[in-house]
Design a binder for these strands. Structure first.
Lengths: 339, 339
DNA sequence: CTGAAAGCGCTTACAG
DNA sequence: CTGAAAGCGCTTACAG
C-alpha cells in the first residue's frame, strides 16, 4: 500500500505535476489554471486521500512547520500548562512543537538547541536558560524567529512575552497593608534574574511609600532542607512579622513546609501571599492568596508573536515586548486583621 | 552562510559523495574504504562542523527519528512527568518526541494521529483515548511501532506498559484492615476502563477475603461540583464508614474537596488512601497515604519497549506486556486505629 | 577499493 | 493556460 504521490495524481489526469502542485498549494488562480482542471485535481486528491509528503516539502522549501520549545523542566505545571496551550494553537495552524527540558544544565541546553537547528525548526520558544545567552544571541543574529518568555534578559535583544512582575507584588503588598498588616516580609531567592528583582522592587517601593519597615530574605537556594532551615531562622529572628510574601512557586512550597515544621498556622500566625498560584494553595487551611500567571494568555501571546515573526522578512527587524497582566486571587490567608 | 553539504566534503577531498556517505554512516569498514581516506573525511567533517541534513536523510530513508506521543492532557502531572523522562531518553538516542493532547476529544485525537502519520513519525506512544481503538488497530496492522501505556484495552493487541493495579489496591485495602479499619469504602468512576476495574477488583477481593462488607461508590463523573455532591450523599448514607480509598488522582482531589465541604477531618473522621500520589497529599493535615505510579520506571519501560519494536522486522510480530509495580507511600491518613 | 547515477517527493524558474 | 526539468541533500544498488 504505497502512499499516493503528486506524480500519481498527475499521471492519472494526464497533466504535469507542476499544475497539480499549484492547485494543491492554492495557487491555481494566481497561476491561471482553468477552473475545470482545478476541480478535476481537487476531486482526485479527495478521492485518493492524497496528502503531500511533508518531508519532501520541507527538504525543498527549507520550512518544517516545526517549532522548538525549550524550558527548564517540561513537567513543571507552569511550563506544561503553557506547553499544552501552545501545542493546541500550533496544531490549528499546521505547526507542531518539539518540547525539551534543559534540567538547568547549560551543556545539555546547548545540545538541545543544536538538535533543534539540525531538525530545521522554523522558530524557537524559550524560557532562556542560564548560560545560553550567547548561543541565543547568535541564533537571533541569523534571523531565526525566537520568542522568549517567563524571564527577561536585558542583554539579549529579542521578542519577549512576560508578566507585570513589579505591579503584581506592589498590588499584593498594598493589599496586605490595606488589610491591616504592618510587618510584611518578602522572601525571594538570591538571584540576578530580572523578574525576581522586579518582584522585589514592587514590594520594596510599596513598603517605602507607606513608610513601613522592609523585611527581605534572600534564600541561597540549593535544597528544600536548607531552604526550610534558612526560612525558619528568618522567622525566628523576626518574631514581630505579621505577613509574608513568597516570591515564586517553589519558594511558597518550601515556605509552607517551613510553616508545618515550625507548627505555624497560616493567617493566624502569619498572613501569606504566594507569587504563582497552584492547586495546593486551594487545599491549604485556610486557602492561600496568590498572584496567578495566566497561562493561556501567555501561551496565546507567545504564539501570536512567533507567527508574526515567521511572516516577517529579515528586513523589518523589530523586537516586541508583550506584558501580560497577572491575576490576583484573594483568599483567606490574607484576610483582614481582626480589630 | 550556507550549510556545508555532503557534496562540499566530497568536492574538497576530490572523492565521491558515496564514499563520504559511507564514512559518515560508520560503514567505512564494511564498505572497504581505506583507513587513510576514512580519516581524511572524518577530519574534514569535524573541521567544517558538517551535520547531515536530517530532512534529506528522512526523505531518502523514510525514517524521521521522531516519535509521536499522544495523551489526554500533557499538562497533567502524570503525563508531563512521563513526557519529560521520555524526551530525555529519546534525546540521548537521537530521537525527538512530538507531544499532543487530545483533550478527550475523539475527533481531535484522530486528527492528531493523522498529523503524526503525515509527519512520518517512526513510532507512537499513547495512553489510548476512547474512540481511537479502531484507528490504532489499523495503525498496528500496518506494522507501525505502537506502545500503549496507562490503560489496557483488551480489544487492542499491542505492546503495553502498565502498572499492577489490582495488587496495588489489594495491598492498600489489606493495609487499612491491618490498621484496624473495618468499614472501608472504595470510590471510583463508572467506567469500563480496565485499569479502573482492576483497581476495584483488588479492593473487592481483599474485602471478601476478610469477610468484610464492601462499600463501593461509582461516580458518574461530569463536573467537580456534581462529584462532590454525589460523594457527600454517599458519605451521609454510610455514617459507619471508617476509611475510604479514592481510585484515581482526580477522584482524590474531589474527595478532599468533599471533606472540606462537609467539615470532615482526614483520619480522625475517616482514614484516606489515594490511588496516585501528588504533592498536595503531602500538604494535607495529616498527610495522605497514597499508591504512587513510578513515572520514571514507566517512561523507561515505554522507551525500551519502543526501541525494541523499532528494531524488529515485521516478521517477528509479538506483543509484550510490561507490568511496573507501584509504590505504596504510607502516611498518617491511614494510621492505626487507637484502641 | 571507489564512483556515477538514480531516486525519495516535492517546488518553482523558465519556456512556450 | 500548461509542462519539462532542475534541484533540495541525502542513500544505495550497481558497475568496475
Amino acid at each position: 500500500m504505497k502512499r499516493v504521490s503528486i506524480k500519481d495524481i498527475a499521471k492519472q489526469l494526464n497533466i504535469s505535476i507542476t499544475s497539480v502542485s499549484f492547485v494543491i498549494n492554492g495557487r491555481a488562480k494566481e497561476k491561471n489554471i482553468s477552473d475545470a482542471l482545478t476541480k478535476k485535481v481537487l476531486d482526485l486528491v479527495a478521492k485518493l486521500n492524497y496528502q503531500p509528503n511533508t518531508l519532501a516539502t520541507s527538504l525543498r522549501t527549507g520550512k518544517t512547520r516545526i517549532i522548538g520549545f525549550l524550558v527548564d523542566d517540561i513537567s513543571e505545571p507552569f511550563f506544561s500548562g503553557i506547553a499544552k496551550r501552545i501545542d493546541e494553537i500550533a496544531s490549528e495552524l499546521g505547526y507542531k512543537i518539539l518540547f525539551s527540558s534543559t534540567r538547568n544544565d547549560t551543556t545539555k541546553a546547548i545540545e538541545l538547541l543544536q538538535i533543534f537547528k539540525d531538525r530545521h525548526v522554523d522558530g524557537y520558544i524559550m524560557a532562556l536558560p542560564e548560560g545560553l545567552e550567547d548561543e541565543v544571541k547568535k541564533l537571533i543574529a541569523t534571523d531565526a524567529p525566537v520568542v522568549l518568555f517567563d524571564r527577561y534578559v536585558q542583554d539579549v535583544q529579542a521578542d519577549y512575552v512576560i508578566i507585570n512582575n513589579k505591579e503584581s507584588t506592589a498590588l499584593a503588598t498594598a493589599h496586605l497593608i490595606d488589610n491591616g498588616y504592618k510587618n510584611i516580609a518578602f522572601i525571594t531567592v538570591d538571584s540576578v534574574q530580572l523578574q525576581m528583582l522586579d518582584r522585589l522592587a514592587g514590594y520594596e517601593e510599596t513598603i517605602a511609600k507607606h513608610q513601613l519597615h522592609p523585611f527581605v530574605k534572600k534564600i541561597n537556594y540549593s535544597t528544600s532542607a536548607t531552604t526550610i532551615k534558612e526560612m525558619a531562622e528568618f522567622f525566628n529572628a523576626n518574631k514581630n512579622l505579621d505577613a509574608v510574601i513568597f516570591g515564586a512557586n517553589y519558594i511558597t512550597l518550601d515556605g509552607l513546609r517551613t510553616f508545618r515544621a515550625m507548627g505555624m498556622r497560616i493567617q493566624k500566625d502569619l498572613a501569606v501571599v504566594s507569587f504563582d498560584d497552584f492547586e495546593i494553595l486551594e487545599f491549604c487551611d485556610p486557602p492561600v492568596t496568590a498572584i496567578a500567571q495566566p497561562l493561556e494568555a501567555i501561551a496565546e501571546n507567545i504564539m501570536k508573536t512567533l507567527m508574526e515573526k515567521l511572516k516577517q522578512t529579515s528586513a523589518d527587524k523589530k523586537y516586541s515586548e508583550v506584558v501580560v497582566p497577572t491575576i490576583f486571587n484573594i483568599r483567606e490567608s490574607s484576610a483582614k486583621v481582626k480589630a
